[in-house]
Deep mutational scan, measured.
Amino acid sequence: TFTSYQLEELEKVFQKTHYPDVYAREQLAMRTDLTEARVQVWFQNRRA
C-alpha cells in the first residue's frame, strides 16, 4: 500500500506523462522512498 503523499507524487507525474523514463522513475522513487521497480509497476497498473 502507498501513503497519500506517495500517491499524490505518483499521480502528479502520471498527469505529465504515462511513460516516465528511467531517470524520472528514479527521481520519483527517491522522493517517495519507494524502489524504482515499485514505481515502474505502479505506472504499468495505472495505465492498464
Score class of each variant (00 low, 15 high):
R31T: 10
E9N: 03
L7C: 05
L10C: 05
A48R: 12
L34A: 03
Q6W: 02
F14N: 05
Y23S: 10
Y5K: 11
L10T: 01
Q15M: 10
F14Q: 01
R47W: 04
E9I: 06
V13P: 02
Q40D: 15
A37Y: 14
Y23D: 08
E26S: 10
R47V: 08
L7Q: 08
V39T: 02
Q15F: 07
D21N: 11
H18D: 06
V22Q: 15
D33F: 10
A29W: 05
P20V: 03
A24R: 06
V22M: 10
A37Q: 14
E9K: 02
S4W: 12
Q40M: 15
E26N: 11
A37K: 09
E26I: 14
E9C: 08
R25S: 05
V39I: 15
R46E: 04
Q27L: 11
E36T: 09
T35V: 04
E11P: 01
Q27W: 11
T17H: 07
R38T: 14
A37R: 13
L34V: 04
N45S: 10
Q6C: 03
T32Y: 05
K12I: 07
R31K: 13
A48E: 15
Q44I: 13
Y5E: 09
Y23W: 12
E11Y: 04
A48F: 09
A24P: 09
V41G: 11
F14P: 00
A24L: 14
S4P: 15
Q15C: 06
N45V: 12
A24E: 15
A24N: 04
R25T: 11
Q6M: 06
V13K: 03
F2N: 02
Q27R: 05
L28H: 02
K12G: 06
V22A: 14
F14H: 01
V41F: 11
E9R: 04
Q6A: 05
V22E: 14
R47M: 05
E36R: 05
S4C: 09
L10D: 00
Q27N: 05
L10F: 04
W42T: 11
T1C: 07
L10W: 00
L28M: 03
Q44K: 12
Y5L: 09
Q40R: 15
Q15G: 07
Q44D: 09
R46T: 03
Y5Q: 09
V13R: 01
F14K: 00
Q15D: 09
R25I: 15
E9G: 02
L28F: 05
S4G: 08
F14L: 02
V22F: 13
Q6P: 01
F14D: 06
A48G: 13
E8G: 08
M30T: 06
V22I: 14
F2W: 08
R25P: 01
K12R: 12
Q27T: 09
V39F: 01
T32Q: 02
S4E: 13
F43T: 00
A48K: 13
Y19K: 03
A37E: 15
T17C: 11
E8K: 08
R31E: 06
T32S: 04
R31F: 06
V13G: 04
Q6D: 01
H18N: 11
F2E: 02
K12Y: 05
Q40F: 13
V39Q: 01
T35G: 04
Y19N: 06
E36F: 09
L7A: 08
V41E: 15
Q6E: 04
V13I: 10
R38Y: 08
L10E: 05
L7K: 05
E11M: 13
K16D: 11
Q6R: 01
S4R: 13
A29I: 08
V39G: 00
T17R: 03
Q27A: 14
A48T: 10
E9S: 05
A24V: 15
T1N: 13
R25N: 03
D21G: 08
E9V: 06
V13H: 06
T35Q: 05
Q44C: 08
E36A: 11
Q15Y: 07
E11L: 03
W42S: 06
Y5C: 06
R38N: 12
K16W: 11
T3I: 04
E36Y: 07
P20D: 02
W42L: 01
T17G: 07
V39P: 00
D33E: 13
R46H: 03
A29V: 10
Q40N: 15
T1M: 10
K12L: 09
S4K: 13
R46Q: 05
T35H: 05
A48L: 14
L7Y: 05
A29H: 02
D33V: 05
F14T: 00
F2C: 04
F43N: 00
A37L: 09
Q15K: 10
E11I: 09
D21C: 06
P20T: 00
N45F: 12
F43E: 02
S4T: 13
V22C: 09
F2L: 13
R31N: 07
E9P: 00
T35F: 03
T32R: 00
T3H: 06
A29M: 12
Y5R: 09
P20N: 01
Q15N: 10
R47I: 10
H18F: 10
F43P: 01
H18S: 10
E11K: 02
M30W: 08
M30S: 12
Y23C: 06
V41K: 14
T1V: 15
N45H: 09
K12H: 11
Y19F: 13
L34W: 08
D33C: 11
L10S: 00
Q6V: 05
D33W: 07
E8Y: 11
E9A: 06
T32A: 08
T35D: 10
T1I: 12
L28Y: 00
M30N: 13
S4L: 11
A48Q: 10
Q6Y: 03
Q6L: 02
V39M: 06
Q40K: 13
R46L: 02
F2D: 01
S4D: 14
T32E: 02
Y19M: 05
L10H: 01
R46F: 02
H18P: 15
E11W: 05
L7F: 04
K12Q: 07
H18C: 09
D21P: 06
V22G: 09
T35L: 05
K12A: 13
T32D: 01
V39E: 01
T35M: 04
V13E: 11
H18W: 14
A37D: 13
F43A: 00
R46A: 07
R47F: 03
V13W: 07
Q15R: 11
D33G: 15
A29K: 05
T3P: 02
D33Q: 13
Q6S: 02
V41N: 13
V41L: 15
T1S: 12
K16V: 14
N45I: 10
A29E: 03
S4Q: 14
R47Q: 07
P20M: 05
T32P: 00
L34G: 01
A29Y: 04
R47S: 04
R31Y: 05
M30D: 09
S4I: 14
F2A: 02
Q40E: 15
Y19D: 05
V13S: 06
T3G: 03
E36G: 05
E26T: 13
D33A: 11
F14A: 03
Y5N: 10
K12P: 01
A37V: 11
F2T: 03
L10V: 02
F14E: 00
Q27P: 07
Y5I: 08
W42Y: 03
Y5H: 07
R46M: 07
D21A: 06
Q6F: 09
L10I: 01
Y5S: 09
Y5F: 14
E9H: 06
V41C: 08
R46P: 01
T17K: 04
A48I: 12
Q27D: 11
E36H: 08
Q27H: 09
P20F: 04
T3D: 06
E36M: 12
Q44T: 09
T3F: 04
F2G: 02
E26V: 14
T1Y: 13
M30G: 06
V41R: 09
Q27S: 11
K16E: 14
K16R: 10
A24D: 12
V13M: 14
A29Q: 06
E11R: 02
A48N: 13
R25K: 04
Q40V: 10
E8P: 09
F14S: 00
L28P: 00
R47K: 03
L34T: 05
E26H: 12
Q6K: 01
V13L: 15
Y5G: 05
E11S: 03
L7P: 02
V41S: 10
L34Y: 01
M30Q: 10
Y19Q: 10
T35C: 03
Y19C: 06
T3C: 06
Y23A: 12
F14G: 00
L10G: 00
T17Q: 10
E26F: 13
V13Y: 08
T1D: 09
E8T: 10
R47Y: 03
V41P: 00
T17V: 06
Y19R: 04
R25W: 04
K12M: 09
A29P: 01
D21E: 10
P20H: 03
E11N: 06
L7H: 07
V13C: 05
E26C: 07
Q40I: 07
D33M: 12
D21W: 02
L7D: 05
V41W: 15
Y23R: 15
K16H: 11
R31C: 06
T3V: 04
A37H: 12
R46V: 03
Y19L: 03
A24H: 08
L28A: 02
V41Y: 15
E26K: 14
Y19V: 04
E36Q: 07
Q15L: 12
L28S: 01
V39R: 00
E9F: 05
V41D: 12
Q27I: 11
L34R: 00
K12T: 06
Y23V: 14
M30I: 13
E8A: 13
W42Q: 01
M30F: 10
R25A: 06
V22N: 09
D21V: 03
A48C: 14
R47H: 05
M30L: 12
L34M: 09
L34H: 01
F2I: 08
K16A: 12
Y5P: 04
T3Y: 05
T32F: 09
A24Q: 15
Y23P: 03
V39D: 00
Q40A: 12
K12S: 09
E26Y: 13
R38I: 15
R38A: 15
Q40S: 14
N45Y: 11
P20W: 03
Y19P: 14
L34P: 12
Q44M: 14
W42A: 00
R47N: 08
L34S: 06
V22Y: 15
Q44W: 08
V41M: 15
